[in-house]
Amino acid sequence: MAANLLARLNLPGFEANTADHYGVVADFDTPEELLRAVRTARIAGYTKLEAYTPFPIHGIDEALGEPRSPLGRIVIVCGLTGLVSAVLLQWWTGAVDYPLSIAGKPLFAIEPSVPIMFELSVLLAAFGAVLGMFHLNRLPTYYHAFFNYSRAAGASNDRFLLAIEAGDPKFDAAEVKTLLESCGSRHAELVEA
């Protein structure tokens, strides 16, 4: 209830869902059964599918038709930012703002700057990887309709869940339920939004 009120406030992280239902969620005993169900549902023409599993399942992205993650590009941009800022930091502080001659060494040179160039590249790239992943995954998420499924906790334990979302153009609760049950699920359920 409180969660629904929060969702109506439209705050970032609280996904406002105007539909009455999230979709139909069904659970399976093994990753292989889940994969088979994903393929069956795709062949039946459903497009808005999501799988929930306790560990990453090899081959599920291909089965769901998921595009590749763009995280690599985010990380490269962050890493290069770190590299450039390390050069600018060492050059500006050492050769411009506070030039101090030590043993006649050049005020700025690439060689002694390499360690910090490397370290700052790695630091910013790592932040890029983590924050980029959080952003792509919309983490933190305070509310998600998926958790209204009575067996949602199984997805972090030993169940392999498949959701066919209500936003799917072909969505019809009864049909979807029958389809998922025919794939071997014993707990296909229409889930509230």
Binding site: F55, L71, M133, F146
Partner: peptide, 27 residues
């Protein structure tokens, strides 16, 4: 953080983990 373990989340997560491993190795 509201982790659900969805296939989309795992996809980005696994890549992030791989990248962090790749960064940590030379580090």
């Amino acid at each position: 953080l509201g982790w659900r373990g969805s296939a989309t989340q795992w996809k980005h997560y696994e890549l992030a983990y791989l990248i962090l491993a790749g960064l940590s190795t030379p580090l």
